[in-house]
Structures are given as structure tokens and as C-alpha cells.
């Protein structure tokens, strides 16, 4: 997504829309610490909040998705 910087701190998670996801796999290339691909090219995302030092990489991975299936959000949503 094209993100606006958050107003406050908080745990952020990488959330995925499984219906939009088409298995392009760009996210796994850009965030291999948290995302790996299953046998069919679809992402398996490490649960839990994104470590602060990976937030920049996470944003790049999310923006790279050609079908906009990923977003960074706090879990309440």
C-alpha cells in the first residue's frame, strides 16, 4: 500500500489478503527474514510484530506487491 506514516508507535504486523494474493513472490525476495514461499509459490508469513529494524524492508516488500495484497497494520483492524 502507499502508506502514510503512523501517528503513534505500536506493534505492526504484515497482513495479507489471501484472495488478492497471486503468488508473485516478490515479498519473499524483499523480506526473507519474515516471509518464505510454500511449495506453490505462496507466502508464509511469520506471525507476530515486525521488528523495528525490519520495518523499512517490510514497507518496501508491501509496496512491491503487484496486486496490493499486503498491508502493514496494527492487529486491531
Amino acid at each position: 500500500m502507499f502508506l502514510t506514516p503512523a501517528a503513534e508507535e505500536g506493534d505492526r504486523h504484515v497482513l495479507i489478503d489471501r484472495i488478492k494474493c497471486d503468488g508473485h513472490g516478490l515479498c519473499a525476495e524483499l523480506l526473507p527474514e519474515l516471509i518464505r514461499l510454500d511449495d506453490w509459490g505462496y507466502p508464509i508469513i511469520e506471525p507476530g510484530p515486525v521488528p523495528a529494524d525490519l520495518l523499512g524492508h517490510a514497507r518496501r516488500a508491501i509496496n512491491a506487491c503487484p496486486v496490493l495484497a499486503l498491508r502493514l497494520a496494527r492487529l486491531a483492524t
Binding site: 508473485h24 513472490g25 516478490l26 525476495e29 524483499l30 512491491a64 503487484p66
Partner: peptide, 8 residues
């Protein structure tokens, strides 16, 4: 040539 390079 990783796949992310192409659309980028």
C-alpha cells in the same frame, strides 16, 4: 535477476 527487480 530477482523477480522484484522487474516491476521495480
Amino acid at each position: 535477476w530477482p523477480r522484484f527487480v522487474t516491476p521495480a
